[in-house]
Design a binder for these strands. Sequence first.
DNA 1: TAATTTTGGTTTATTTTATAAACTATTTTA
DNA 2: TAAAATAGTTTATAAAATAAACCAAAATTA
Lengths: 94, 94
Amino acid sequence: MLKDLDPLLHSQLRLGVMSLLMSVDSAEFTYLKEKTNSTAGNLSVQLDKLSEAGYITIEKSFRGKKPLTTCKITKQGLKAFEEYVNALKQYIGK
Amino acid sequence: MLKDLDPLLHSQLRLGVMSLLMSVDSAEFTYLKEKTNSTAGNLSVQLDKLSEAGYITIEKSFRGKKPLTTCKITKQGLKAFEEYVNALKQYIGK
DNA sequence: TAATTTTGGTTTATTTTATAAACTATTTTA
DNA sequence: TAAAATAGTTTATAAAATAAACCAAAATTA
C-alpha cells in the first residue's frame, strides 16, 4: 500500500519554499517570492504554516528602515522533507 | 524559477491512481481503492476528474451481476505523468 | 514639497479541492 | 426473509489555496 504524503509538504508553494531552503543557509521573503513566483499574500500564509509546523523559522527584522523577513529550514523540517521525498519515490518510481 | 506542477496530478489520491495505472494494463475500482487506501466516494470523484482530463479511461461493465469499473491510463495521461515527475525533480533534487 | 508609486509585507474573503457522509441498487449470507 | 455486504454515485462539509484588500513606510516624480 502507498505511503501517505505529508500534507504540509504536498503543496506546490510550500514544497517549493522547502526545496529552496534546503540549498541555502537562509532566504529572504522577497527571494522566496521571486523564485516561487507566488504572491506575497499566499507566500505569507504558507510560510506561517511551515513555521507553525516547526519546519522553518521566521525572523523579522529591518534592513535600514524596511522590514526584512528571513527564513531558515529547521532540523525537523529537513527530516520531514527527506521523508516526504522518500515517500514520493513510491509514487513516481525510483 | 520553479516549474509549475500539474495540479491534476499533484494530489495524493490522483497521483497514487496514476502511479498504479502506470504499471498495469488496467485496474479495477476495488483494486485501486484497496491500494490507495481511499474511500469509494473520494476515489469515484478523483477518477472522474482524471477521466475528464483525458488522463484515464473508465469502462463500466458487469462481472456476473455486479458492476465492474475498469480504468486504464491513456497516452495523454502517461505523458502528463512523465512531465509531472520531471517537474517534481526540480523540487526534490535529482 | 505634496501627491503618487513602490516595497514589504499581513489580514481577510473567496474560490477551489479534498474528503466524508449519505444514499442507491443489487447480491449474498445468516 | 431480514440483515449485511458489494460496488459504487451524489451531495454536503471541511480544509486548503489563492486572491483581494489593506497597512505603513520609503522612494520617486511632478
